[in-house]
Design a protein around this nucleic acid. Structure first.
Lengths: 135, 135
DNA sequence: GCATTAATCTACTAAATAAGTAGACTAATT
DNA sequence: AATTAGTCTACTTATTTAGTAGATTAATGC
């Protein structure tokens, strides 16, 4: 399951995707329209900005905007920034790989199974972008 | 990510699949061979038994065994028993469905996306059985 | 250059879940 | 009756999740 944080992130990005090319959007506006606790949303947007998914501007006329066009912003990357690995086991994760201490590294059938599962999800989430969330 | 509990469950079941048809296996044997804390494993096996995935026998000559043959024991069901939903959002879960309060129920593009992701994983995990874990 | 606006940063707190443990109890054998 | 081995109830501890508070910094407009 995605965390609440990741769910909020997707909703906020959906909103920013709809406003893409129209200049910065206030955190408060996103929070109100998408019903997200504002201080929590601040943290989320900051993380997305530090991951180069968003850009921000301070002061009057400031706010947040997508760094790249909606069709360039890949859903899998968003989820990785907020929730970490998409794979179901550390030993089959592409971006958060960690070797498993117990299982035989030469050939593990459990590993094979979860590589298949991982590839199946990634085949969807790596191809989907924020533009797929727009009406 | 799967919980440690689910990872232990898979390993224990892999062991029991290899011993299928050879009578009950002791918890202590599984715990030792698969390097799982024994008291924790007790809880796990009990949950799997209550979910009709395992059967058990008390007293001397007792232990745990698969209820059905390895090729009838579906991995997706095992994961659901231990970790709950496989879907990434409550509103797209088949067995643990919960409506989302905020989003438009008539048509939600976020929902559509995560239905696609869910179907992709289930297409793997519903087809795999414990016999796919055997050598 | 000062006031205002709005994001940034540091540092918490509370609640829930994950991971594991302890010990008494029950059922089946011998 | 003694032994064996799973069952049940109830904890504890650590980690993560979800959210909050308040001071700080940067940009803009006058």
């Amino acid at each position: 399951m995605l965390s609440k944080k990741a769910q909020y992130a997707i909703k906020a990005l959906e909103y920013l995707a709809a406003r893409y090319g129209q200049g910065p959007v206030l955190i408060s506006e996103i929070a109100e329209k998408k019903q997200i606790p504002i201080k929590f949303l601040e943290n989320i947007l900051l993380e997305l900005r530090n991951a180069d998914i968003l850009e921000s501007k301070k002061g009057k006329g400031g706010g947040y905007a997508l760094k790249d066009p909606p069709d360039q912003t890949i859903v899998a990357n968003v989820l990785r920034v907020i929730d970490g690995p998409i794979a179901m086991l550390p030993c089959v994760s592409l971006y958060f790989y960690q070797p498993c201490e117990t299982c035989d590294p030469t050939h593990c059938r459990i590993k094979d199974l979860f590589i298949e599962a991982r590839d199946a999800v990634l085949n969807v989430l790596e191809k989907k972008t924020l533009s797929d969330l727009l009406p």
